Amino acid sequence: MKHFFALCVALTFAVTAQAQEFKPFKVNVSIGGAIPSGGGGVLFAIEPKYGINDQIDVGLRLESALMARDLTVNGNTSSGNAQGAFSYILTGNYMLSDEGFRPFVGIGAGIYGIAGTGFTATSGTGGSTTNGNINAASVFGGMGRVGFKTGHFVLGVEYNFIPNSNSIVYDSNGTNKIGTSVQSKNSYAGIKIGFDIGGGRR
């Protein structure tokens, strides 16, 4: 009986020690480069995360990116103004290892706020130009990521899948179409370095 009681106590302490080893809540803070089609910029992100266990995190990524992106006007590529993009993304991450070096993969989905951008369109006949813009919009999109974590340091690469924005531009009289196929490619990649505050093992 004594041996059985001692075994129960030992198992209880072992389970308790293992439970105390894992701290579920953490906040990731990252900076990096934003790479849209034909342009570039910078980004900043903060992502509170909760660990369901030591290998699976769920979180909310709040990201702001400032970047210039390509536009397609009448089939020709043109550069737009540098504008911001904001996102509120529910995320899920899976750690591929429980060692010190921890590769991970992840996905996410949520709302992207795309700022408007200006451009200049040229008509094909008269050669006249007019300034136009693509209006700001909020759209639903997705995200995929890969990276690794070592200690609290995190390096990741993400791709944000965002629907393109489209617009039609008219001349000053409001009658003749200057750009019948004005499109902004909103998707962008992000290369990020950051660190986790909290989480990990005790």
Rank of each mutant, 00 (worst) to 15 (best):
R102C: 14
L62H: 03
A19K: 13
V154F: 05
Q20I: 05
L66Q: 13
S165M: 02
V15P: 00
T129P: 06
E99R: 12
V42H: 02
K2E: 14
A45V: 04
F140T: 07
F4P: 00
G80P: 06
K185D: 11
G156H: 04
G108I: 14
F13C: 09
Q55G: 01
Q55Y: 12
E47Q: 15
V182L: 05
F25H: 10
H152K: 13
F25M: 12
G198F: 08
R102P: 07
L7R: 08
Q83K: 06
A85P: 00
S79H: 13
N176I: 06
N173F: 02
K49L: 11
G151D: 03
G194F: 04
I162K: 09
Q83I: 15
F104G: 00
P36M: 07
R102V: 12
E21M: 14
T175G: 05
A137W: 00
G84M: 12
A136D: 05
A136V: 10
T72M: 05
N166P: 07
F119N: 03
G116R: 00
M95D: 14
A137F: 01
N53A: 04
N135C: 00
V146W: 02
P48D: 07
V105W: 14
S165Y: 03
G151E: 07
K192P: 05
R202V: 14
A45K: 03
A136M: 03
G80N: 05
G108T: 05
S37W: 11
M1N: 11
L71I: 06
V73F: 01
S87N: 09
S181T: 09
G156D: 09
F4G: 02
M67H: 01
T175M: 03
G151K: 01
C8R: 13
F25Q: 12
R69M: 10
F119D: 10
V154D: 04
G41S: 02
I197D: 15
Y88L: 13
G156S: 13
A137E: 09
E158L: 14
A68K: 10
A17P: 01
G113L: 04
T130R: 06
K185P: 04
C8D: 05
I111V: 15
R201D: 11
F104C: 03
V15N: 11
A6L: 11
S79Y: 03
G190H: 01
I134V: 08
I107V: 15
A65G: 11
Q183Y: 03
S128P: 00
L11P: 02
F161C: 10
N76E: 12
G179E: 08
S87R: 00
F101Y: 06
A10L: 06
S167C: 03
A189F: 14
I46E: 00
I114D: 09
T77A: 15
G80R: 10
V105P: 04
E63S: 12
M143L: 11
T16C: 07
K177Q: 15
T91M: 14
G39M: 12
N28G: 13
F5G: 10
R61C: 09
E21W: 09
H3S: 11
V29Y: 09
